[in-house]
Design a protein around this nucleic acid. Structure first.
Lengths: 197, 197
DNA sequence: ACCTGAACACCGTTCAAGT
DNA sequence: ACCTGAACACCGTTCAAGT
């Protein structure tokens, strides 16, 4: 049996990503499988290989959508902020909140370790750059472009790492160290250090 | 066929972890499997379930060893350092170097997402605490114990996140932003910020 | 008592064959 | 042309049965 032609390639592509997103939200990335996605959209596993290179490719494209979603969240978190510190605190809070609210999707973001010869999907790096761009923009009043770039990487990496540790419960459970308090300490003191430098 | 009794339980335990470590080093965590470990130590998959709860448990115990290895590296990185900043820079460099040199083992460290009802293996949390302890010690000259604890989490999380981003090549490949430069910026400016607070 | 190995319920991926 | 579904080579995990 074959030849249904109910949907175009790009429709199947979109349906698959939607199904994958739902599965990851419900069962986590480890609950995701080609067969499950296929069943969910009324096709067979083989069909997905007409549209994606493999499962990792599919996950990376899901991640690209997640990065866009995160971008939207951060933009809205920036609404009405004034000054470098306030804007960076807003970004940090937005990041922590997103990681918390969309835990499985956020986990998936850092789960694909692609081989050296494999390239990222089209537009993926652009979405990463857009996120760093938000931080660089918030840092706009700072002196050099080089310093802004460096600082944006330090802050983004720092906020990410703190969130990871906090959500993994690797930190001491005893202490009242919510990730927001940690990222605030990072932002406030790092900026003060830069200013004092 | 059965009943070989060539090795005690604890010998099998140790041999399995050793084999797992070798496989992860050679093929990465995704190359690790119960069957591979078993073959490598001359037993059958089923035997491993007499010694470990499941594969995740085995990986967590491998991670506990890796944390100890990391602790040793960081202690030796601290040799001869003087002053808060110098010691923290030494720790950061040690961490980055370890992640780089033992990439697959370091990746494995953050790969197990254990369910809410599952507990960490015995002694695991103690090893995590020992690592934070190194940072807190380096921060000893700082005022309050509370502030030291907070700062140690911020710095550890920050250094981890920066390393993650850098080794994942998520950062702009164009820029000359080696992780060492980023962690140095973090440590120097965060400390200056604390001092200026 | 100790360990095996077959069995179960899954995987990702490929591709000849059916409509 | 489009999609299937069987096949391949793997998984983690369990447990009756063999020595």
């Amino acid at each position: 049996m074959a030849r249904r032609n109910d949907h175009s390639r790009s429709e199947i592509h979109q349906m698959a990503l939607e199904a994958a997103r739902a599965i990851v939200r419900e069962e986590g990335l480890s609950g995701l499988s080609v067969r499950k996605i296929a069943t969910r959209i009324g096709y067979t596993g083989g069909t997905l290989y007409l549209v994606f290179r493999n499962l990792d490719d599919l996950i990376l494209q899901l991640n690209a959508q997640t990065l866009e979603q995160l971008h939207t969240c951060l933009v809205s978190a920036l609404q009405g902020c004034q000054g470098v510190e306030q804007c960076l605190l807003a970004l940090a809070r937005g990041y922590v909140r997103f990681a918390h609210d969309e835990r499985p999707l956020w986990d998936a973001l850092y789960s694909v370790r692609l081989a050296a010869d494999e390239a990222l999907p089209e537009g993926y790096q652009a979405r990463v750059d857009a996120l760093f761009g938000l931080v660089e923009q918030a840092l706009a009043p700072l002196h050099g472009a080089e310093q802004r770039r460096l600082a944006s990487h330090v802050l983004w990496g720092g906020i990410h790492g703190i969130t990871r540790l906090a959500l993994d419960d690797k930190l001491d459970l005893a202490g009242p160290t919510r990730p927001e308090a940690l990222t605030e300490s990072l932002v406030v003191n790092y900026l003060r250090g830069l200013a004092a430098g």
